[in-house]
């Protein structure tokens, strides 16, 4: 890894307060980064056909963009970008996710906040975050927000859910309006 080499070079010029160079380097790589090396690979190998992942900086595994292009349902034809930021306290805490594409969805509001149970830090049921979850589960969950996990019962965008319950055609039209507007 390039990051490791860089750290190694830097280390030689710094006082090592009694530790050998190798030891202090190992110590500086956080648990999060060690987990990410495995999990990013696993995520890439298990990516659903409707998803793609992009790392702005290939040396930083803790920040990436997930693009979901649903191939069925109301949001078919759209492309939705999510920024995923894995904070230092991973995997005790879930990644922070924000939707960068404006869309009409009961579980994502127009500010890009995402309501997905597995991203909830504190949860009394088995659907919330747990350190046993991995990045691939997060990708799977976000992808499923457009299909299986789509939930009109407990909405974040209440207006969208109410519109769906009143008039599905109107809802569908508004969803597609947002998609067309986003393409312009």
């Amino acid at each position: 890894m390039i990051t490791l080499n860089r750290k190694l070079k830097k280390e030689h010029t710094e006082p090592t307060n009694g530790l050998t160079t190798a030891e202090s380097i190992v110590r500086r790589i956080s648990v999060r980064d060690k987990l990410l090396i495995k999990e990013v690979q696993e995520m890439n190998e298990n990516l659903p056909a409707t998803c793609s992942v992009h790392f702005e900086d290939p040396n930083v595994l803790s920040e990436f963009i997930l693009t979901v292009a649903p191939d069925e349902g109301y949001w078919q034809g759209g492309k939705f970008k999510f920024t995923v930021i894995v904070t230092e306290d991973y995997n005790m805490a879930p990644p922070r996710v924000k939707c960068q594409t404006r869309l009409w969805h009961p579980n994502i509001n127009v500010d890009g906040d995402v309501c997905l149970s597995l991203l909830r830090q504190t949860s009394i049921d088995e659907h919330g975050w747990a350190p046993t979850r991995r990045l691939k589960d997060v990708v799977w969950g976000l992808n499923a927000l457009f299909t299986d996990l789509l939930n009109f019962e407990d909405p974040l965008n209440i207006e969208a859910a109410e519109m769906y319950n009143k008039n599905k055609t109107e809802f569908q039209t508004k969803v597609q309006d947002y998609i067309t507007k986003g393409k312009r």
């Binding site: 009694g18 530790l19 030891e23 202090s24 190992v26 110590r27 790589i29 956080s30 648990v31 060690k34 987990l35 495995k38 995997n91 350190p131 046993t132």
Partner: peptide
């Protein structure tokens, strides 16, 4: 260990990063 994904009989991911001598 389902949390750090290291064998439970080995030191955990956190402890592995810490120097034994230290």
């Amino acid at each position: 260990c389902a949390i750090c994904r290291v064998q439970v009989m080995d030191a955990c991911l956190r402890c592995q990063g810490e120097s034994k001598k230290d």
